Each structure stands twice: as C-alpha cells, then as structure tokens.
Computed example of a mutant assay.
Amino acid sequence: MTYFLSKAGMDFFIAFGVVIGGSMLAGVGAVFMLMPPATVMFDTAMRLKIWAIVAAIGGSIDPVKVIESNLTLGHLSPAAQQICFILFAFLGAHMGTELVKLVCKGGI
C-alpha cells in the first residue's frame, strides 16, 4: 500500500510540475519574444497536459502493456493499479492547467 501511494503521489506531482514549469518558462520566453505572456502560458499549459501525463507514467507504452497482459491473464489488481496511476497523473496535469488558467485568465 505504501508503494502505491508514493507512486501515485509522485505521478501526480510530476504531471503537475511539467505543466506548471513548462508554462512558466513559456511565459518567460514570451516576454523575451515580445508576445503576451498570459496567452502563451495558457496555450502551452493546454498543449502540455497530455505530455505531462505521459512523462509522469514513464514516457513509454509499458503501463499499457501491463494493463493488457494482466487483464488477459485475469489479474485485475495490477491493471487497476496502472489505471489509478494514469488517473493520478491526469489529475496532476489537470490541476496544473487549471492553476495556470486561474493565474492567466483571472478565474474565468
């Protein structure tokens, strides 16, 4: 249980950090390129969301293979764990995107 919670927490914060960090650096780059930073940050956060999930779960197809192989063998627990890890990564990426939206658009 400790492994599951620590891995799920790490997936959440990695995805959150990818979105927040990428958006902030895009905003800094926008200032240097004389572009509107809030718009660039928001657009970058929306585009980074899926890549943040991929980075958090390992950046490969291995989690999908684990799900497929365990489901075909009838083992539901490892497949459910992988699905939970993906969901935690999605939650982290989504919360990062919503935070960027709140900062850039003023909560609209």
Results as ranks from 00 to 15, higher is better:
residue 40 V to N: 03
residue 49 K to F: 13
residue 31 V to M: 13
residue 43 D to S: 11
residue 48 L to P: 06
residue 46 M to Y: 00
residue 33 M to W: 08
residue 41 M to N: 06
residue 36 P to C: 07
residue 46 M to V: 04
residue 45 A to S: 11
residue 56 A to Y: 11
residue 33 M to I: 02
residue 50 I to E: 10
residue 62 D to G: 05
residue 36 P to I: 09
residue 58 G to R: 05
residue 53 I to Q: 08
residue 35 M to R: 08
residue 33 M to D: 15
residue 56 A to D: 12
residue 63 P to Q: 01
residue 60 S to F: 12
residue 62 D to W: 14
residue 44 T to H: 07
residue 58 G to P: 15
residue 42 F to K: 00
residue 52 A to V: 03
residue 51 W to R: 01
residue 44 T to Y: 06
residue 55 A to H: 13
residue 49 K to R: 06
residue 48 L to W: 06
residue 40 V to E: 01
residue 34 L to G: 00
residue 62 D to N: 10
residue 41 M to S: 11
residue 62 D to T: 10
residue 52 A to W: 01
residue 59 G to D: 05
residue 56 A to R: 07
residue 49 K to T: 14
residue 33 M to R: 11
residue 40 V to D: 10
residue 59 G to F: 02
residue 62 D to P: 01
residue 60 S to V: 14
residue 52 A to I: 00
residue 63 P to C: 03
residue 63 P to V: 13
residue 51 W to M: 07
residue 50 I to F: 13
residue 53 I to H: 07
residue 39 T to M: 04
residue 57 I to E: 08
residue 47 R to Q: 12
residue 48 L to Q: 04
residue 43 D to N: 10
residue 60 S to E: 08
residue 48 L to A: 06
residue 36 P to K: 07
residue 61 I to F: 15
residue 44 T to N: 01
residue 55 A to I: 13
residue 54 V to L: 12
residue 63 P to A: 05
residue 52 A to M: 01
residue 59 G to T: 04
residue 51 W to N: 06
residue 49 K to P: 04
residue 35 M to T: 06
residue 57 I to Q: 04
residue 57 I to R: 04
residue 38 A to D: 15
residue 55 A to R: 10
residue 41 M to W: 08
residue 57 I to V: 15
residue 31 V to Q: 12
residue 52 A to K: 10
residue 51 W to Q: 12
residue 51 W to A: 09
residue 46 M to G: 03
residue 43 D to R: 13
residue 37 P to T: 09
residue 45 A to G: 01
residue 51 W to Y: 15
residue 54 V to E: 01
residue 43 D to W: 07
residue 53 I to Y: 05
residue 46 M to D: 05
residue 63 P to L: 06
residue 62 D to L: 10
residue 39 T to E: 14
residue 39 T to R: 07
residue 38 A to G: 07
residue 44 T to W: 11
residue 53 I to M: 15
residue 30 A to Y: 13
residue 52 A to H: 00
residue 45 A to K: 08
residue 34 L to T: 12
residue 51 W to C: 06
residue 53 I to A: 12
residue 51 W to P: 00
residue 34 L to F: 14
residue 37 P to Y: 07
residue 37 P to H: 05
residue 44 T to K: 07
residue 50 I to D: 13
residue 36 P to H: 01
residue 55 A to S: 15
residue 63 P to I: 09
residue 43 D to M: 07
residue 47 R to H: 13
residue 37 P to V: 09
residue 58 G to Q: 03
residue 61 I to A: 14
residue 35 M to L: 14
residue 47 R to V: 05
residue 61 I to T: 15
residue 63 P to N: 09
residue 45 A to E: 03
residue 42 F to V: 05
residue 39 T to A: 11
residue 59 G to I: 00
residue 46 M to L: 14
residue 40 V to T: 02
residue 32 F to W: 12
residue 62 D to C: 05
residue 30 A to R: 09
residue 47 R to T: 12
residue 59 G to W: 03
residue 52 A to Q: 02
residue 45 A to P: 08
residue 50 I to V: 15
residue 61 I to C: 02
residue 39 T to S: 06
residue 52 A to Y: 03
residue 41 M to P: 04
residue 49 K to I: 08
residue 55 A to N: 12
residue 39 T to L: 05
residue 37 P to R: 06
residue 31 V to H: 01
residue 50 I to M: 11
residue 45 A to V: 08
residue 40 V to Y: 04
residue 56 A to T: 02
residue 51 W to K: 01
residue 57 I to G: 09
residue 56 A to W: 06
residue 53 I to S: 06
residue 61 I to P: 03
residue 49 K to W: 09
residue 35 M to F: 04
